[in-house]
């Protein structure tokens, strides 16, 4: 009995000691916050591509038709990029706590071009360093923001052929495996 108490006391001391020297908690690091948001976005986008478009589209059961002008087609469905934008727009209606968008320095839709210097710098960085993210801080108006940019990659020939052949695309030589644009997530600090 005494021995158990002793052990328990020692264990408590040990736990106490390990606790020492750790920084006080100050809320979530913005990088962890944006990385987590991106993980969810990436998973949803992949699943939409894999479990809906690929399974039910022309490459699968062929019952839905992913198309830019999906609204005009009975069984039309959104392209993954449009689905992504629909999500961003729905979030923007709910909150100003964070914003996100799918952008490119070579956009089909000019609304998807970078608007701030930091966005442009980030998109250029991820294009030049495949597989890496970009993190920066920028001041817009009176507010300082944490801005993270994550790569969006040409994962299939469908991405490259549609963009390369699109009349509004400023670039016609995208290749499989190339960074085509990026997801910009911005949170006020």
């Amino acid at each position: 009995m005494k021995k158990t108490l002793m052990t328990l006391a020692m264990a408590t001391v040990a736990v106490g000691l390990t606790g020492c020297g750790e920084p006080e908690s100050k809320g979530v690091d913005p990088k962890i916050y944006t990385d987590s948001l991106f993980a969810v976005m990436k998973a949803d986008r992949t699943n939409y591509t894999k479990l809906v478009v690929k399974r039910l589209g022309p490459a699968g059961a062929n019952v839905i038709k992913p198309d830019e002008h999906w609204k005009d087609i009975d069984n039309g469905t959104l392209l993954p990029a449009q689905m992504f934008r629909a999500g961003a727009e729905a979030v923007a209606e709910m909150t100003d706590d964070f914003t996100y968008s799918l952008q490119s320095i070579w956009p089909i839709n000019s609304q998807n071009a970078p608007k701030t210097d930091m966005e442009k710098k980030g998109l250029e960085y991820i294009a030049a360093n495949p597989g890496e993210n970009f993190y920066g801080e920028e001041k817009l108006g009176d507010t300082t923001y944490f801005t993270a940019v994550y790569p969006d990659v040409a994962v299939s020939d469908a991405c490259t052929s549609c963009h390369n052949d699109h009349k509004d695309s400023p670039k016609s030589d995208f290749q499989l495996g190339e960074v085509m644009g990026g997801v910009v997530i911005r949170v006020p600090l």
Partner: peptide
């Protein structure tokens, strides 16, 4: 790897 595969395999792009 860095030159050819990292673009997807560092990030889990498309799983």
């Amino acid at each position: 790897y860095k030159q050819n595969c990292k673009v997807c395999h560092a990030q889990g792009i498309n799983g």
